[in-house]
Amino acid sequence: AWQGRSIGTPKLRLVEFLAFMEQQGEPDAYNKHLYVHISQSNPSYSDALLESVDVRQIYDKFPEKKGGLKELYEKGPPNAFFLVKFWADLNTSIQDEPGVFYGVSSQYESPENMTITCSSKVCSFGKQVVEKVETEYARFENGRFLYRIHRSPMCEYLINFIHKLKQLPEKYMMNSVLENFTILQVVTNRDTQELLLCIAYVFEVSTSEHGAQHHIYRLVKD
């Protein structure tokens, strides 16, 4: 059911992705605030098929030189490319005091046993400002291989960015800043260098009182 409805290919599928802040020492859900969240653990045939976006519409929002989105897309495979529009939830009641933990967790699944490399590039005006590269090994569970990046600490740049964003008095000002803030995640098979998933993230601030929202698109080139 997930094919065409969520982020994934027959080789690797995103199960969950979240960025959060949490009061340390009390890791229960009540003290955790989710800035963004994708959960694809229960795909259904009733879910809508993904709409598509022409990848050329967003080239300049991501690195354009060597290893940039254009070069990655031309190399393919095209079915591994997705765009996520996040409406981030900045409406947290957790006090930003020392000891608060900022983290990112994600989980992938695959029918294959691989070692994967996950690169996350934070970009400002399309230029990379920080990159984190993580390597994950498979764990066999319930008939498939799971890759779990659990509570990876958020980098200082992102924490400061969130702080500054929250200080802006109006949502339109936050959205104006977010127009030039993007993240590109590339997951590759470490041993073969095959590209498994490429996810481009763009942002607005949520106006909902029900937490973070998102739309997922396939990236195409017609």
Binding site: V53, Q57, W87, E179, S208, H210, G211, H215
Partner: peptide, 24 residues
């Protein structure tokens, strides 16, 4: 933004790109 950048609103993007989903 940079002067050579086209605002996102002026690009060819699906209408849903500007509609925050309602929580399910």
């Amino acid at each position: 933004g940079r002067p050579d950048q086209v605002p996102m609103r002026k690009r060819h993007l699906p209408a849903s790109f500007w509609e925050e989903p309602r929580p399910s």
